[in-house]
Simulated scan of single mutants.
Amino acid sequence: MFRLFVVIGSILLWGGISSGFVSSDEHKSDGLSEEVKKLSRSTEWKQVEKIDLDFNIHHPQGMTKIGDLYYISSVEILEETEQYEEPKGGYERSPGEGIGHLFIIDEEGNLVEDLELGEDDMYHPGGIAYDGEYIWVPVSEYRPDSHSIIYKVDPKTKEVTKEFEADDHIGGIVKDEKNNNIYGVNWGSRQLYEWNGKGELKSVQDNNSHFIDYQDCEGVDKGNMLCTGLAELTADTDETYELGGLALLNKKTKEIQHEIPISEFSSNNHNITRNPVFVEKMEKGLRLFGVPDDDYASLYIYETETQ
Rank of each mutant, 00 (worst) to 15 (best):
D54F: 03
H124V: 07
E76A: 06
T81P: 09
G126D: 12
I51H: 11
L102F: 03
F55K: 11
G90M: 06
I66N: 13
K88T: 09
E133D: 13
E141R: 14
G98C: 03
I105Q: 05
M63D: 04
I51M: 12
E76Y: 10
D121L: 08
E79W: 09
W45E: 10
G62T: 03
G98M: 06
E44R: 14
L117D: 01
G98W: 13
K46Y: 15
I57R: 10
E49D: 15
Y142L: 13
K65W: 02
H58K: 12
E141L: 10
Q47Y: 07
S140C: 10
H59A: 13
R93V: 07
G126H: 04
D131C: 05
R143G: 02
H59S: 13
E86V: 06
Y134L: 02
D120P: 03
Y130P: 07
E97N: 12
E133I: 01
E133Y: 07
Y142C: 11
V75S: 09
D106S: 01
H124M: 08
D54R: 12
F55E: 11
V139M: 14
A129F: 09
G109H: 03
E49K: 15
T64A: 12
R143D: 13
N56K: 08
E76N: 13
P60M: 10
G98I: 05
T81A: 03
P87D: 12
I77V: 15
P138H: 11
P60Y: 09
E113A: 15
I77Y: 15
F55T: 00
S94H: 00
E49R: 15
V48E: 13
P125M: 03
V139R: 14
G118H: 04
E44T: 15
I72T: 08
Y130K: 04
Q83D: 09
S140N: 12
N56R: 06
Q47L: 15
I66R: 14
E116A: 00
R93F: 01
G132N: 09
E108T: 10
Y70H: 00
N110H: 06
Q47G: 01
W45I: 14
L102W: 03
E113M: 13
M122G: 00
G89H: 07
F103K: 05
G100M: 08
E119M: 10
D52G: 04
E86I: 06
I104Y: 12
H124D: 09
L117A: 00
V139I: 12
D114N: 08
D114M: 01
E97T: 08
K46W: 13
E97V: 01
D121H: 07
D68I: 08
V139H: 14
Y130N: 05
Q61N: 11
L115R: 01
K88W: 10
D52C: 00
Q47E: 15
P87T: 01
V137Y: 11
G100C: 02
E85L: 14
W136A: 00
P87Y: 04
Y91V: 05
P125F: 05
G127P: 05
I66D: 13
T81I: 14
S73D: 06
E79I: 03
Q83W: 04
D131M: 04
S74P: 10
Y84A: 01
A129L: 05
